[in-house]
Simulated assay, not measured.
Amino acid sequence: MRDSRKRIGTLLGAVLAAVAVATAPPAAAADGLGLDVLVHRPGTSPGFIFVAPKVEGSATAPSYAEVVDDRGRVVWSHRVPVGQQVTDFRKQTYRGKPVLTWWQGTSPSGAGHGEGTDYIADLHGKVLATVEAGTGLADDQHEFRLTSRGTALITVYHQTPADLSSVGGPAAGQVFDAIAEEIDVATGKVLLHWNSLAHVPLADSHAAVPSAAPYDYFHINAVNVDQDGNLLISARHTWTVYKVDRHTGEVIWRLGGRHSDFALGDGAEFSWQHNPLPAGPDTVRIFDNASNGDSADPSRIIWVKLDERARTATLVRSVRHPDSLSAPSQGNSQALPNGDTFVGWGQLGRVSEFGPDGRLRFDATLPAGYDTYRAYRFAGY
């Protein structure tokens, strides 16, 4: 493990040293995939693109964490061992300093989740810390969010016996309990352990009950801190964003789904969503997949304004790709310093940047067959 961390640190140090001194990035690394740039117009936010190319469910295709420039050239890539994947590779802040973070592990074919470890490295490549879930659990690939409290928010999938007869499944069935944990990075102490089965019934799911596999009724895919310090938890399979009390774990409200606490106005409906994030006072930005692979409905990024007193949710803005892209899985959006919005189109292996007016400023794609769970743009090294 020590040798592995040293090797990772050396690789990260090399790329970050290059990024720090370059005004024009160096030529592409020998190993890595890069991007095929389709559109590049003036006005994009400065910085490099962070992606983690993978072939979903493949046990043989190589997977990477990559830093790429606006011409699609690989500035740096870290190739993980065959059979492993990287997700959510990005820049964050830990103890007041910029760091690189990522999840690395295995994701069984068709399972829709992963088991692995979360890593934090400084900008010289030294691994500062790893984060692991509570006893007997494994970190899932969907979320690794550092907070200003020196904690990490992660997701976990825990298979457990369940009576599924109420939803048309076997009485002696199996279900994935969706777990969100907040962990003190320095000590590993679990500060919050929230599990879906204690708060959300099976009947709220829009996912079909499988004949043999465990029932992924909830499918947790994001945990983020809202503006008031409580948590926003996304459940893809219930079409719901849950606001959860960070101290007690109680559900404060539900947005969307079968039991929404808000009446959703025209255009504010969403389904199979990812990555809800606070986007201003009483506003949530959501990657609305609008599809689970069973339709070609265009995916969108939507901004939804919440009136907690009137219990209404109003669409204030939405962005679609001009090609009407439909992402059956994965995806995210990121607010950039210049007012642009950077978007990863998940399963489609596409990344885009849109101006405040919704105009497409940058568009690129990974090689055929590859996707990236999320995509980001970061500057400031």
Rank of each mutant, 00 (worst) to 15 (best):
R2T: 07
L16I: 06
A18C: 09
A20T: 12
A22G: 12
P25D: 14
P25W: 12
D31M: 01
L33I: 06
G34I: 04
L35K: 03
V39C: 02
R41D: 11
P42D: 15
G43Q: 06
P53S: 08
V55R: 13
V55C: 03
S58H: 09
S58M: 08
T60A: 11
T60K: 14
A61C: 02
Y64W: 13
A65T: 04
V67I: 15
V67A: 03
V74S: 09
V74Q: 06
G83W: 05
Q84V: 00
Q85L: 09
F89I: 03
F89Y: 10
R95A: 13
P98H: 09
V99K: 01
V99M: 05
G105D: 10
T106D: 10
P108D: 10
G112V: 10
H113C: 03
E115G: 11
G116T: 05
D118Q: 09
D122I: 03
D122V: 04
G125F: 11
V127I: 15
V131R: 05
T135F: 02
T135S: 13
L137N: 10
Q141W: 11
H142F: 04
H142Q: 09
H142K: 03
F144Y: 12
L146K: 09
R149M: 02
A152V: 10
T155H: 08
Y157S: 13
P161V: 07
G169E: 11
A171R: 15
I179N: 11
E182F: 07
A186P: 05
V190G: 05
L191R: 14
H193A: 05
P201Q: 07
S205D: 10
A208T: 14
A208P: 02
V209H: 08
A213L: 12
P214E: 14
D216K: 12
N221S: 07
D226Q: 02
Q227F: 00
I233L: 15
R236V: 04
W239P: 00
K243N: 04
D245L: 06
H247A: 14
T248N: 06
T248K: 01
I252G: 05
G256K: 09
L264N: 05
A268R: 02
A268K: 02
S271I: 00
Q273C: 03
Q273N: 14
N275D: 15
P276N: 08
D282S: 14
F287G: 10
S291A: 13
A310K: 14
R311F: 02
T312C: 07
T314E: 14
V316F: 03
R320T: 13
P322F: 06
D323L: 11
S333L: 01
N338P: 07
D340T: 12
W345A: 04
G349N: 05
R350V: 13
F354C: 04
T365D: 02
T365E: 12
L366S: 02
R374W: 08
A375S: 12
Y376N: 01
Y376A: 01
G380Q: 08
G380L: 00
